[in-house]
C-alpha cells in the first residue's frame, strides 16, 4: 500500500490524514492486508458470493403512511437547524 493509495482512501472515507499518525495507519492497514491475503490461496472458481447468510432477499416495504410527520422531533437531534431545515455551511457563493 503506497502513500498515494493511503491518501485516496482517506479522501474517499472523508477522514483527515493526520501527519503524525500516517505511518502508523499505513502499517496497521498493511498488517490487516497481510492477514487477509491468505484468502487469495483459496480456490473460489464458480463459487457465488454469499451476501446474506440465510440466502434471503430483503423484502421491500409497501409504500404506506405508517406514522405522523415527526419533523420537529427529528430536527431536535440536528446540530444546527432553523426549525424547518438542517443548516449546513454555505454551499453556493
Amino acid at each position: 500500500m503506497d502513500d498515494k493509495t493511503v491518501r485516496t482512501i482517506f479522501y474517499l472515507s472523508r477522514l483527515k490524514q493526520d501527519k503524525d499518525g500516517s505511518e502508523k495507519i499505513k502499517n496497521d492497514l498493511k498488517a490487516i492486508l497481510e492477514m487477509v491475503n491468505s484468502l487469495k490461496e483459496i480456490d473460489t472458481d464458480n463459487i457465488m458470493p454469499l451476501h446474506n447468510p440465510l440466502e434471503e432477499t430483503s423484502r421491500v416495504f409497501e409504500d404506506t403512511v405508517s406514522s405522523d410527520n415527526e419533523k420537529s422531533l427529528f430536527l431536535e437531534n440536528a446540530p444546527e437547524s432553523d426549525g424547518d431545515y438542517f443548516i449546513v455551511p454555505k454551499v453556493v457563493e
Partner: peptide, 20 residues
C-alpha cells in the same frame, strides 16, 4: 474501492459461502 473490490470483497464473500 475500484480495482480492489473483486480481489478482496467479492473473494471474501465467496470464501464466506465455502465456510457456510
Amino acid at each position: 474501492s475500484s480495482g480492489y473490490y473483486d480481489a478482496y470483497y467479492k473473494k471474501a464473500q465467496q470464501v464466506r459461502r465455502l465456510i457456510k
